[in-house]
Computed example of a mutant assay.
Amino acid sequence: MPAISIWRAASAVFALALASALAVTTASAATTWPARPITLVVPYPPGGPTDIVGRVVAQGLGEVLGQTIIIDNRSGAGGNIGAEMVAKSAPDGYTLLLATTAHAINMSLFANRTYDTQKSFAPVSLLTKGPLVIVARPDLPARNVGELIALAKSRPGKLTFASSGNGQSTHLAAALFNSMAGTQMVHVPYRGSAPALTDVMGGQTDIMFDTMLSSMPFVEGGKLRAIAVTSAKRSPAAPEVPTVAESGLAGYEATAWNGLMAPAGTPAPVVQRLSDALRVVLGRPDVQAKFSAQGFAAEWMTPQDFGRFVGDEVDKWAGVVRASGATIN
């Protein structure tokens, strides 16, 4: 046999052996996973809505998988710091990201990113989805959307809205409101919902478009006033609170979501096991009740469906970013 044929034959045998070894390694990893604690990176501070969702999901996943899930709060840069950390992590299923609407928004908002929401991660499942609620400091002289618009127009550049950070849904939902209502409320970004809400309650800022999960307890306690929800229909968690659209700003709608992602390249069997575990967790009545009481719906998706959902969100929010003129270098 000619030397070149021998070389080709040897190369083919080596390639086949390597592929077989990798397949065995992947299958073995999936079989033994998880063999140690898993880190769930929450890209926001403790106490905010994303952190609350993360802790509920972490507890449920830990019980189903029989392994400890450690919450690692890595806040900053509109969720980018935590996302970049996970994107650079080993794709072994031991470092996960609690992704949010912001990670779809950031694709068009931030000029400089070191990750791509659709390419740097393996989608696992949606976790929760729900409306935002416009909350105001109790002494704000506006009790509904019509009065808020009138007040803002009478004080152009004076009324302020807090957000959980530049480019978050809590920011762009208000930017969309400004655009559609013709108002000029000023954006005041914070490093998460918890400190933002604290300043609204303290009167340092006027209003906030926040998740119901973190805001409604303060509304019920009389520390905030709910003006409207941002969904197309009223929320079962607060049926007495009208929608923005029915209150005079027709066509307005904005929702927030949380989902689970792993680094790109994570073995498919590991992603599938995570997906299967989440289906159990999100189907539990106690978990559904915890989210429903605060305006979120627990919603499971297959990895494939969640990937398509994220792609649609990236496209949708890119239009909002362009219309708002917002950009961050």
Results as ranks from 00 to 15, higher is better:
L159R: 03
T160Y: 03
A162W: 11
S163H: 13
S164D: 12
S169G: 13
T170W: 11
H171Q: 06
L172V: 10
A173V: 08
A174E: 15
F177T: 00
F177H: 06
F177L: 00
F177K: 00
A181P: 02
Q184I: 00
V188E: 12
R191G: 10
R191M: 14
A194E: 15
P195R: 06
P195H: 11
M201C: 03
G202W: 01
G203P: 14
D206Y: 09
I207F: 10
F209H: 01
S214C: 00
S214E: 13
S214R: 04
S215H: 03
F218L: 05
V219L: 08
V219D: 09
L224I: 05
I227Q: 11
A228S: 09
V229M: 03
V241H: 07
T243G: 04
V244P: 01
E246I: 01
E246K: 00
S247T: 09
G248V: 08
G248K: 02
L249Q: 07
A254P: 00
A254L: 00
W257S: 04
G259D: 11
G259T: 09
L260D: 10
A262Q: 08
P263A: 02
A264H: 11
A264R: 14
V271W: 14
Q272L: 06
Q272F: 06
S275Y: 11
D276V: 02
D276H: 11
R279G: 15
V280K: 08
